[in-house]
């Protein structure tokens, strides 16, 4: 059993009051308590940005890597020890800007890892520049005349790139985010969870009020297994038209389940001592 108080470190959170990261952190700790994620079974990774600070406040062994690179690090951890639950916390700039290449390729590989995008549509830590998910015409320090670029759609990109679990959460709904985090980890294969995260300091458009007013949960007869419908759904965005929940989920063999070397034991449990290589040398005679 993981207890909530065991999940905190000596560092207290230093996010701005009201920041969506605080809610994401709460949802993650709730999920960990519910599911027993702890230092015996779980590894965390983060990129660089306000989102990455989550590692300092969460007492589960982690690696805080480079800007844009948490996904390959998470992949390496999973391949080395596929017994671990692996979570990568990343930002919209981190994951879709600096790390875009890794994101696309991770989606098509189906490693059994979880990628949580703290999507605040802004560069928080570097004090408010436009990010890959900032809207067209958005004014920021780096786009004072309005953003001439159009935003990337992480849900659509993930589905198109072959991810087998694609969902969106709104950080302000801690309970809903908790449920989606748990579902993501239960899915065998790559899970992409795009978490709408208000940045109260720099992004005055995508605020808590904005999301509360405009998001709705997918449900009813929505079929998560229909890829075309999911793709169509992913394009929906507007007033009262921001879907939350699982867009797409299918069962495909995870990467790790296809690798004979890690079927029985994780790599880290195999002895690296190889004394007798006579057979191998013989091939070159």
């Amino acid at each position: 059993m993981t207890k909530l108080e065991e999940l905190t470190t000596k560092c207290s959170p230093n996010w701005c009051p009201g920041c969506g990261n605080i809610a994401i952190w709460a949802a993650f700790k709730n999920s960990a308590v519910k599911k027993g994620w702890d230092n015996t079974n779980t590894a965390l990774v983060a990129g660089i940005g306000c989102h990455g600070h989550i590692l300092n406040f969460t007492k589960i062994t982690s690696l805080e890597g480079l800007h844009g690179r948490p996904v390959p690090v998470a992949t390496g951890i999973k391949l080395a020890n596929n017994r671990l639950n692996v979570f990568a916390f990343t930002g919209d700039g981190d994951c879709l800007g600096e790390g875009g290449n890794h994101f696309v390729h991770a989606c098509r590989r189906n490693h059994d890892i979880n990628v949580f995008i703290h999507d605040n549509a802004i560069y928080g830590l570097t004090t408010g520049q436009t990010s890959p998910t900032s809207p067209h015409n958005y004014k920021s320090k780096s786009t004072p005349q309005g953003n001439p670029d159009y935003p990337i759609n992480p849900i659509a990109v993930a589905i198109a790139s072959g991810a087998t679990f694609v969902a969106r959460a709104y950080a302000g709904d801690i309970q809903g985010t908790t449920d989606l985090m748990i579902k993501a980890n239960e899915h065998k294969g790559i899970s992409i969870l795009d978490i709408l995260q208000p940045c109260v300091t720099w992004n005055k458009e995508q605020t808590h009020d904005f999301y509360r007013a405009n998001t709705y949960y997918l449900g009813g007869d929505y079929d998560v297994k229909n890829k075309e419908a999911a793709f169509k759904k992913s394009l929906e965005w507007g007033e009262k038209q921001i879907p939350i929940g699982v867009f797409y989920e299918v069962d495909e063999p995870s990467y790790e389940s296809q690798i004979p070397q890690v079927k029985e034991n994780p790599l880290v449990d195999n002895n690296p001592v190889r004394k007798d290589l006579t057979d191998l040398f013989e091939e070159f005679v």
Binding site: L63, I77, N81
Partner: peptide, 18 residues
């Protein structure tokens, strides 16, 4: 997918004990 990934995957694997 690239060398950036190559070294970061290697770091992840080594961090996990491989």
């Amino acid at each position: 997918e690239d060398e950036i990934s190559a070294i970061n995957m290697s770091i992840g694997a080594a961090h996990a004990g491989a």
